[in-house]
Design a protein around this nucleic acid. Sequence first.
DNA 1: TTGAAAGCGATACCAA
DNA 2: TTGGTATCGCTTTCAA
Lengths: 330, 330
Amino acid sequence: MSKRLRKEVNPIKQVLLKDLAQAAGVSEATASRALSGSGRISQETRERVRSLAEVMGYQANPLARGLAGGNTNLLGVCGSGVLKPFMHRLLSQLASYASSQGQKLVFAPLPLLEGLRVLLPLQIDGLIVCWEGLDEDLAAELLEERALPTVVLGTRSEYCSSFDVDREWGVKTGVAKLIELGHRRIAFVGESTANDKWQGFVSAHTDAGLSVSQDAIIACEGTPLGGFGALDQFLSSGFTAAFATNDEIAVGLLRALEEKNFKVPEDYSILGYDGIYLDQLGRPRLATLAQPSGTLAKMAINQLLDGTEQINESIPPELIVGDSIGKMRD
Amino acid sequence: MSKRLRKEVNPIKQVLLKDLAQAAGVSEATASRALSGSGRISQETRERVRSLAEVMGYQANPLARGLAGGNTNLLGVCGSGVLKPFMHRLLSQLASYASSQGQKLVFAPLPLLEGLRVLLPLQIDGLIVCWEGLDEDLAAELLEERALPTVVLGTRSEYCSSFDVDREWGVKTGVAKLIELGHRRIAFVGESTANDKWQGFVSAHTDAGLSVSQDAIIACEGTPLGGFGALDQFLSSGFTAAFATNDEIAVGLLRALEEKNFKVPEDYSILGYDGIYLDQLGRPRLATLAQPSGTLAKMAINQLLDGTEQINESIPPELIVGDSIGKMRD
DNA sequence: TTGAAAGCGATACCAA
DNA sequence: TTGGTATCGCTTTCAA
């Protein structure tokens, strides 16, 4: 698109700083100062320019602004695994909250380093790193300098603000519920890397005066197929309930049980993790620990915009008591 | 972030055009020409500069480029309704395909006009409009000038390329399947605005030599609750199967039936639309017409990047035969 | 507190 | 085919 064409065609009249300055009877420099936060300007002028800007609908061009060293109002999001069900929701939520705050979101579904290569030249004002993309060393380098405000989501970071999910607490709460329902032999089905979930699993037992050992673990892939395949081991070990480290596994297991004509929750109880079906349309509605994605999105963006100090919080997932857990059968 | 800080901290060394030009022993103007497509340059120089650019890892700054009138490699996406389940998937798919093509996606979850206000100043190279955001007049104005390559997704546009979903064909195929399974009284449950779906519904009947009338329609909101509420009318009218205009409705109806202790698909067959649970984790797996979101995403971006002529295609959804439809009971 | 002027990094036009 | 130069819109430094 040629330069000229672009301008003529643009259906939205662009009000330029020049125009604004002229209308206000000040120089461009002054107008610019009035709009940015920097203090060196008289109160009166500032207000006049600002209100005029509002009236005229002036919006600084982010490109020019970025090039000159100001804010672009562009927030970068990176992290692979966009295609995971849970990421869908987080992404959408980030996008819509950002938009409501006048920020634009640029997606780079890539690991941190590659993502930065794409995002940094855009002079993004802030970065949101989701889950797996995090490289702590690189993060450290970036953030010790406080150059690029960054928020890490879903894992804890030493070097920058992060909003983690309190998986341990969540799992503890969920498993405690199972115990409360009378279950004594509960399987831990899933990826063995989920240490914090395992901790929560153990705590729940300990708190109830029960003992658990590693033999409660049924290792499997984090997919429906993984859960499906876990059935034999689950059935042969005298379990009456299972906690699955994610919903995909849980539903796989659910389907496997169904194929053998077992009933959930009458015969077995299944508890998942993630809340990918928050709308709870499945049947039975899967009991699960729902990731607080809306909260994460909001906090991340607020922190990027207003945060001055590093914050590291851990947000608990919410126990959704669906229909897939129930009292232990007699 | 101050200008100086930004530069020092940037962990990825930025090679500037200046550097490249110097290394190649040509002017910046020449170097720029060598990289862009425009022909006015000697083959030899072009190749030298290009290979040098590769070696040095030169990446033009998109901001500067955009400001000066070149490509930003930024693609804008607008359209409200991001939080609808189906949009989640489309969005992720767009993001990851765009990324694989070296494009960045900027998302503005807003209707067309507001979206443009946000997106145009970014000098996006192309625009993807999703569903509801489309305003044909505005689109016309934009696109008659061929100024901003635009693709409309999910609806047909006169003025620009569009990739629609062939809802009529899809529904016809799905309903034909129900008819093939022996169903004769099929309900059309959902929003009455879905004309093309209704057409498909009628065609399927007509093709099979059956007649349908408007009394097959059970109007309801496009939500699980809507489907849930449609139960009474469904049961009282002698239907044995239902086509729901979206999956939310379908599952609502499914749950309502379950509460009355009916079995699906033994007692009733339910067919949905959208494929929001493509992973098919629900129980029973909902039979549905899955939106071809991956295809849509790919085609949209390819068209934006390479398309020279307006294309208007209609892509059929895919019939997913889950477990929620079966032979009519005797 | 203000204005003038110098960039930011790249592209596009005009001469040569 | 090339180089010089104006320009894109805005921010920031430097004087006044």
